[in-house]
Design a protein around this nucleic acid. Structure first.
Ligand SMILES: [Mn+2]
Ligand SMILES: [Mn+2]
Ligand SMILES: [Zn+2]
Ligand SMILES: [Zn+2]
Lengths: 156, 156
DNA sequence: GCCTGATTGCAACAAGGTTGCGAAAAATGC
DNA sequence: GCATTTTTCGCAACCTTGTTGCAATCAGGC
């Protein structure tokens, strides 16, 4: 009797209800996709993970992602490939935290909250708001195999 | 008899000669623009600061900027407005250093070399290459004026 | 069930950047 | 200076990511 595939959908619905705003099919579905994801997703990735049966328009996905971000239910990350990536805010990633981006496949991951950013000095008159820390490197899939013939996939 | 406006051009030519590659008008001009700039410039900004008399094509500017970056004569910075900004590498900014981006006007500045990034832990199998540190905030032009009627320009 | 404003779908647009290819311009050797 | 070789440039067309205006639809309150 217990739902099994609605796992993420249920959490999504609950979170949405808490905002007091309208609960719509696209919102639930998009948030569920983000919640089920193990890493930050681009708009295109969200689109392709969305049940095709829903037929959600791509513009709607853009709008929902933006809206989720405003509501604090998601946060978006700018990689250096000029593509936004979105993450559900649930994952305990409320406060400021660092990000990792693979310089080969572009994949983005939230890292653990950073203890203390090194102080940087700004020119006079400038005001600091927050510090973003991004680690660039190779993800497990993109690190070249060492000696054993391995499972090096290239998810471009 | 001493040249006066060629300041940046001369340095540009010298740097280019050192690469051993071809010295072309667009390369000299674009690098001179970067050298004369007080901050990182977008492609469009470079284009508008280039002597119109040269009639350099915008595609060429893209290609030259990319090439300068490969040669180590410039470096490019990804802001969160999905626009590349370029800086001449001369400015003593050889090593790793932090960047500032104004969250209002988008302006990007190179900051001083950072002493020591806080160590972040990556998942198993991930390899770290470098750490990027970006300070977000308001530049002097975008900080709201306090009490004296001031010179608050908005260079959007 | 009906009303009303919030949301969605569609089509058209925009910015930033890339690609293919023939023409023009550097370097090089004479 | 001139021809030769190779790189670079200009142009037009294209692509990706994201935005906007507006009419049609839907969620929530009654
Ligand atoms: Mn994150
Ligand atoms: Mn810099
Ligand atoms: Zn990777
Ligand atoms: Zn500013």
């Amino acid at each position: 009797m217990t739902a099994v595939k609605t796992d993420a959908s249920d959490i999504a619905e609950a979170s949405l209800r808490r905002t007091g705003a309208r609960m719509t099919r696209p919102r639930i579905a998009v948030l569920a996709v983000l919640l089920a994801a193990e890493r930050a997703l681009t708009h295109t990735e969200v689109e392709s993970r969305l049940p095709a049966s829903l037929g959600v328009n791509r513009v709607t996905i853009y709008r929902v992602l933006e809206w989720l971000t405003e509501q604090g239910l998601a946060h978006k990350i700018a990689g250096d490939d000029r593509v936004w990536r979105f993450n559900a805010a649930e994952h305990a990633h409320r406060g400021p935290h660092a990000h990792f981006q693979c310089s080969d496949c572009g994949q983005v991951l939230c890292l653990d909250p950073v203890t203390s950013g090194p102080a940087v000095k700004l020119p006079a008159g400038y005001r600091q708001q927050r510090v973003e820390l991004t680690v660039k490197g190779l993800c497990a899939d993109c690190v070249p195999v060492r000696r054993k013939a391995g499972s090096h996939r290239h998810p471009h």
